[in-house]
Amino acid sequence: MPKLIAIVEDDPDQRANYAYAITKKGYEVQAYASREEALLGFDKQLPDLVILDIILGDEVDAGFQICRDILSRSPSLPVIFLTERINEIDKISGLRLGAWDYLSKPISLDYLAEKISSLLRLGEVSSTQVSASDNVKVIGHLSLDQDALLLTWKNQRLDLSGTEFRMLAKLVKVPGHAVSYESFMNATMQSLVTNNTINTHMRNIRKKFEAIDPEFDCIKSEYGFGYRWIKQ
């Protein structure tokens, strides 16, 4: 049975485009234009993944409200914000509400499809509680389970967002080698990424490591080029 993806987007063209592309990938799609419509739909059937725009018509925070509402019904439901509101503060509040990722427009539909599939896989993993997978990479104190999107540092679990996880995976692919900004941009699966965005992500990753290990100093800036993972 195909997974049910719910799309809440007030712009009919974009809504149709998303629906077309996602259906094409073999998912079932429910598209809603407003908050009321969406909540009514969710009452009938909960989707497996929700893609939310934040601004719906005149309601500037409708996406956040839907997110809060739906996560209260199903806390482990993957939620992706896909929005033109890309201010840091929106991103933070979105993620804080429990969204799994925050994507900005304009989006590449291929990336979107990939994101959906990876999040659905992740949801499956977390729901089936399959902790160990075969695809685990260990570099020093770091262990990286790319299928389960599980990450541990010195045997402590770290929660990274999907984008952050992919960036870190890219960074440690060949430890010791510098990874360029461009490579990271591809890893974010977004079409418009600046060095600043990469830097922001990297800083967040560093902070998450430092939160559990103040000594952490494996991510080195290669100014003007990118980043490098060095062994501690």
């Binding site: 712009d11 063209d13 974009q14 485009n17 998303y18 592309a21 033109e84 427009k105 304009p106 989006i107 590449s108 539909l109 291929d110 079409s191």
Partner: peptide, 11 residues
């Protein structure tokens, strides 16, 4: 928003 429409439509 229109850019996104344009982009997704092209794709």
């Amino acid at each position: 928003n229109p850019l996104n429409t344009l982009s997704t439509s092209l794709q």
